[in-house]
Amino acid sequence: MSASAVFKPSRIDGRRLRSERTKQLIIEAYLALLRERPTTPVPTAAEIAERAGYSVRSVFERFPDLHTLRVAAADYGLAHAAALAPARDVDADRPTRIKSQVETRAGTCERGVALWRALTFNVDEDDALKARLRFARTRTMERLEIMYQPELSTLAETDRRNMLITLEALTDMESWARMREMHGLSFAEACAVWIRAIDRMLPPTPPRA
């Protein structure tokens, strides 16, 4: 086998890695622009390219259109949020679990509300984004079910599902944004609102066996 045949795959892998890195930097530039200007229209290709340090052509070589970039950013954001928000204090007492769940969810909302708004813009026209929004909401409900399993276990199936739906709605992105932006609450004050509301909504915690 010739030396050129041996080294050719590594060169291909290197190009692929550079291309993937470029895609990641373009996605991160898109997300950074969303966070910086949450009330303005989604960034243009030129703005994204400038922030990422690439040409507009480079953007469209990796993403055929801005819709594809938007979907890729959704996947990146969801994966990033999951990595930064593992379930904590699952077996702790009720006050600790509520505080832990609220602070974790609040951190996710604080970091992700700009992306969430970009995803929900004209979402009814986009099946790919609708699927990702459903996934995000389902994952939130699954986390709530894990954190409040002792209390939810005391409810009938329909009541348990209704409680999870209510808790998910209470702690959604726009609920957090309204407290922070419209009502001017600090991070700690907004967390306290959620903590009190959840504590009142949940049924009594059953005694440990």
Rank of each mutant, 00 (worst) to 15 (best):
R105W: 02
A106F: 09
A106W: 01
A106V: 06
G107T: 00
G107A: 03
G107Y: 00
T108N: 07
C109I: 05
E110P: 00
R111L: 06
R111F: 06
G112C: 06
G112W: 02
V113L: 03
V113Y: 06
V113Q: 01
A114L: 01
A114S: 05
L115S: 02
L115H: 04
L115N: 04
W116Y: 15
W116C: 07
R117I: 01
R117T: 06
A118Q: 01
A118I: 00
L119D: 01
T120E: 00
T120L: 02
N122E: 14
N122M: 12
V123Q: 10
V123R: 03
E125S: 12
E125K: 07
D126R: 04
D126I: 02
D127L: 13
D127A: 12
D127C: 04
D127P: 05
A128T: 06
A128S: 13
A128I: 05
L129R: 05
L129M: 13
K130H: 09
K130Q: 14
A131G: 13
R132V: 03
R132L: 11
L133S: 08
L133N: 09
R134D: 14
R134I: 15
R134T: 14
R134M: 12
A136Y: 05
A136E: 07
R137W: 11
T140A: 14
R143D: 12
R143N: 08
E145H: 11
E145I: 02
I146E: 13
M147K: 09
M147I: 15
Y148W: 03
Q149R: 10
Q149H: 11
Q149A: 12
Q149M: 07
Q149E: 13
P150A: 04
P150V: 05
P150F: 02
E151M: 00
E151I: 00
E151N: 00
L152V: 05
L152P: 01
S153D: 14
T154L: 11
T154Y: 12
L155N: 14
L155G: 12
A156R: 15
E157C: 06
E157N: 10
T158I: 15
T158W: 09
D159E: 15
D159N: 11
R160G: 00
R160M: 01
R160V: 00
R161P: 01
R161D: 11
